[in-house]
Write a protein that binds this DNA or RNA. Structure first.
Lengths: 246, 246
DNA sequence: CGCTATCGTAACATCGTGTAACAAGAGTGC
DNA sequence: GCACTCTTGTTACACGATGTTACGATAGCG
């Protein structure tokens, strides 16, 4: 494999530089970032194999950033933080972090844990390096992220609405992983900023949305092959996704 | 979704039992093992999604075991150990462990880290994780684990509900072994959350469920051949089961 | 033979999901 | 402004899956 490209996000310049130098000395390509905007820029423009994300970033919050990214991407994330209490660690794991390292840390141990995560990631060849790719194939279907169009196996073509596109994106980012309605809603609301009205007593919006997407991409919406229901839990995209360059 | 199957290896029986109970209460299938031989048996005979491997195992050594297994298999391994020095942790990561947790640990944190590793692993379609498409044969009957369909000897075919499927799976896993209602309920409730007050006198859910399954798979539900009642005990699946990969 | 614990199951209650129908914007062309 | 279309959330109803209850049947036992 090529040299792993790591993104180091920390608002403390000294810390950032130290980590980057150390990682580079140990054979990695390490790049700096300071904000969510910077992260997104890197994710869009270049391959990132793993992120080392500080939790306390001035007015931003690493945990929140991690949560938002998880809804869209599958990039491995190791949270780094001076907050080492159990509930703080658990919050990190809950939003999808792959590991959580407390500051101050032994550099050698950081290295070992980075390698452990990369080792695991490298074994999922089709999904490891998802980034700004535009084309997905699954079961003869093709999704063109640029035009938001889905092409059916027989050449028929459907157009998805914005919300349907968002749902499909979330699903593509999490194949085989059951997602609750709350998780789906949270991932979709990333684009629309904060909106804490997640009280889900009457909220059937996700169900309806799923139904609409099914009616467009499933051969038989009554007996869905791809977008399946996990009763009492939520929905799963139970199909292997193969990704290609646009 | 398939329930993750964890293997807990610890030579301290009390610790082992505690971990297994806790994991089971949190929706996992947890199985015990004590030695490398026991581990290999489990890996050969059944699917194991993750191993929690104690480092100090009497005269055996978890790190060594991890190293040997890594050379052969890709099963995710979390090392658990009272040895928490940095060099000991690093030794664990170096032999291919996915994580290293120091004893004593916060059970909730263990849970979070188990989930983090499984999350990462589950995105790899190549792993043994989804080898749940088994075929079973018994007395001319066939059970297709993928479609949840049961084919009768005469070619007739029935579809099982989720709960019925779960019951059949439990039975197929324990042929000729009488199971109490509590055992069946526990095996089925792994997906649901806690609420261990299921052993009520009024709880006839299992009986009804058995009846419904009988009405679907028994030729004469009034005189069941396969799913028999063990009066005062529970139910037995009194038929030889042949298992095959799909 | 009767007693009692246990089991089978029909009938009902409850819950989660699918979806049609409606309503409320948002955008567009005139 | 107005009419039209497209999108999206809400509501209501239907339906299937599953748990609960009640009552009759039955096995085991004295």
């Amino acid at each position: 494999m090529t040299i792993p490209r790591l993104l180091v996000i920390d608002d403390d310049a000294e810390m950032r530089t130290m980590m980057i130098q150390f990682l580079q000395q140990n054979g990695f390509c390490a790049l700096p970032a300071q904000s969510e905007a910077g992260i997104r820029k890197h994710l869009q423009t270049g391959r990132i194999d793993l992120m080392l994300l500080d939790v306390m970033l001035g007015d931003e919050n690493g945990v929140k950033i991690c949560q938002r990214l998880r809804g869209e991407q599958d990039v491995p994330i190791i949270l780094v933080s001076a907050l080492s209490a159990d509930h703080q660690r658990m919050a990190g794991y809950e939003v999808g972090a792959d590991d959580y390292i407390a500051k101050p840390f032994n550099p050698q141990l950081l290295l070992a844990r980075v390698r452990a995560v990369l080792r695991r990631v490298r074994r999922s060849p089709s999904l490891a390096y998802r980034r700004n790719t535009k084309l997905f194939h699954f079961r003869g279907w093709t999704y063109d992220g640029k035009k938001d169009e889905v092409h059916a196996p027989d050449g028929f073509q459907v157009t998805l609405s914005r919300r349907e596109t968002g749902l499909l994106r979330v699903l593509l980012a999490n194949p085989h992983i059951p997602l609750t309605r709350e998780e789906i809603a949270a991932a979709l609301d990333v684009t629309q900023e904060q909106d804490a009205t997640h009280s889900d007593t009457t909220g059937r919006a996700i169900d309806v949305l799923v139904g609409r997407l099914r009616s467009k991409i499933e051969r038989d919406p009554k007996d869905p092959e791809m977008l399946r229901t996990e009763r009492g839990v939520g929905y799963v995209f139970g199909v292997d996704v193969i990704e290609a360059e646009a």
